[in-house]
Amino acid sequence: MQREADLASHSAEEPTRRDFIVIAAQAFAGVGAALALWPFIHQMNPDASTQALASTEVDLSPIKEGQAITVVWRGKPVFIRNRTPEEIKKAVDVKLSDLSDGSARNDDLPERAPATDANRTKKGHENWIILVGICTHLGCIPKGQGLSDARGDFGGWFCPCHGSHYDTAGRIRKGPAPRNLEVPPYAFTSDTKIKIG
């Protein structure tokens, strides 16, 4: 006890001489220990092989008017349909006030953009409608891609799980789904090729 008291009082008498180097050393060591934490955290972020699949390129030239294909992007189905002029007109003619969900849900546009057909497609390529094929209700994949598939009351897509009807611009018109089908971020890299993501 006495010895410990001696040691303690000794340190109290000369704090600056002993504490500075001790504090400096501990601070230096501590910073390194903190930095060493980063690799342990970062290793859980998407790795290089996943990043490589963050974008998908699609060649649209084989898709004829009226046809549709489904591709995979980031593990999700994406509907790509080459709409007929009738389908385009039907989508353009819809009044915004008739829509259950008035937001464009387009990842390339701000939150509040209205759900006009123009905001659901790219300028100059209005015949192409590209949508994430996951029903916004509970996640089923709606029918409508195949030529003989049911398309629902609005000619777009129909989700068989709980009866949601989407129109030719992929907007929810009837049924329990709360939001329009999401339009993923994409761009035309040439007249016939797109890059999604």
Partner: peptide, 13 residues
């Protein structure tokens, strides 16, 4: 090999 090549800091781990 995936860990050595693709995982962030996988080679280090």
């Amino acid at each position: 090999e995936h860990i050595r090549r693709d995982v962030n800091y996988g080679w280090l781990m």
